[in-house]
Amino acid sequence: MHQEVVMAGAGGDGIMMIGQLLAHAAVLEGKNIVWFPSYGPESRGGPADCTVILSTDEIGSPIASTPDVLIALNQMQLDKHAPTVRREGLILLNCSLAVPPKDRDDCRVISIPASEIAEKAGAVKATNMVMLGCYAAVAKPVTLESIIKALPEVLPAHRHNLLPVNELALQRGAEMGVG
């Protein structure tokens, strides 16, 4: 198993958090991981993306130049990263904020209204979790159980009151993935 995933959204979307959550879940499963952030000179706002590479083997390049999977939370990030996804890769997009790419027929494209799902689950801020849950169900990099188990490690202690809503958002996302 070797999977390279790029997660992309806007600052404040919790992109780095779902990247790290996936990384923690992978460690729980004894897999190798590399997490690498993109970072700019701006301290706030602007695009935010990170790469997570999961593997049962030793990981070489920490940079995914042609990722297997793209998780895009908005149109700008989808437009930016969709062309880099490898042929027959997976593009997962939040259709609440983006329309599917027209020129990637060679990829599996899954559109889910993640923002609406998150809102119904109790917090629109958990859109990132809906996307991660869906990705976990579709591509099976790790089990949803591992992600849920890792959640308290990634969510800061003073936000642990939000564990249930995040867990619910992960599950709702996963349901979209299997459904």
Binding site: V27, V34, P37, I59, P62
Partner: peptide, 9 residues
């Protein structure tokens, strides 16, 4: 910057 910024186990 890559080695310094990346996270591994």
């Amino acid at each position: 910057a890559v080695i310094g910024q990346m996270i591994e186990a």
